[in-house]
């Protein structure tokens, strides 16, 4: 039965049909599927399937990324309080756009995916100062700082990732905290992430989930 539900959910997500996806979940719960199974056997595999579709260049659109993350986030918010015991957190991420950048779509997609993957996300919003990224990472004991930039000058500017890297270095935090970046300039220059001092980059908001959980595993004891 789970496989059938998963297929129906996937179909609704790929069709960007939020109402249908939520209906599939509701019907599944009524049939006895547990909230844990909804998250780990339906929602997370749907995201992984989308990652696969993206990597195979099956023509997945930005709107589908957005809706997959949006639906996943809504379902997880609804399911987790119903878990028999609180889920174990995979890790903690601080996310925001670089200073001077006011484009929030990418980080919203990333946050939705991470939430489904049981990563705790603190969203600092838009136009975030580099010092704040680091201060908040320390305050939340985060393993990863994720910086989204949609413009070339905010991606490679001195108050973006470069400065975050410098602060981590100055404070001796590089072993504890990793930096992930994403946004259009990185897609057009796949080596840019190295030049700005990031540890990794993600081509889109959905695959960012895999990249960021990989970074968490590198530093989490």
């Amino acid at each position: 039965m789970l496989e059938q539900v998963m297929n129906q959910y996937n179909e609704a997500v790929m069709d960007t049909d939020r109402d249908q996806a939520l209906l599939v979940v509701r019907d599944a719960l009524a049939l006895g599927v547990t909230p844990e199974e909804v998250v780990f056997n339906i929602v997370v595999p749907a995201i992984e399937l989308m990652m696969k579709a993206i990597s195979e260049e099956q023509g997945v659109t930005l709107a589908q990324h957005f809706m997959a993350a949006q639906i996943a986030s809504e379902v997880v918010d609804d399911m987790v309080p119903r878990f028999r015991k609180a889920p174990e957190s995979v890790g903690t991420v601080i996310i925001g756009t670089s200073q001077g950048d006011f484009h929030g779509l990418g980080k919203r997609i990333v946050s939705g995916c991470l939430k489904a993957m049981m990563v705790e996300v603190t969203d600092l919003g838009l136009n975030v100062a580099p010092e704040r990224f680091v201060d908040e990472a320390l305050a939340h004991d985060a393993q990863v700082i994720a910086i989204s930039s949609m413009m070339v000058h905010t991606a490679q500017g001195e108050n973006g990732c470069r400065r975050v890297r410098q602060i981590l270095k100055e404070r001796g935090l590089e072993r504890r905290i990793r930096i992930a970046v994403g946004g259009a300039p990185y897609r057009f220059d796949p080596e840019l992430y190295r030049n700005v001092g990031a540890d990794a980059w993600a081509e889109n908001g959905i695959t960012a989930g895999r990249v960021i959980t990989g970074l968490i595993r590198e530093v989490r004891p």
């Binding site: 001077g100 413009m151 070339v152 000058h153 905010t154 500017g157």
Partner: peptide
């Protein structure tokens, strides 16, 4: 910005 287009 000093080195890129203005943002809304």
């Amino acid at each position: 910005a000093k080195d890129g287009p203005p943002n809304v």
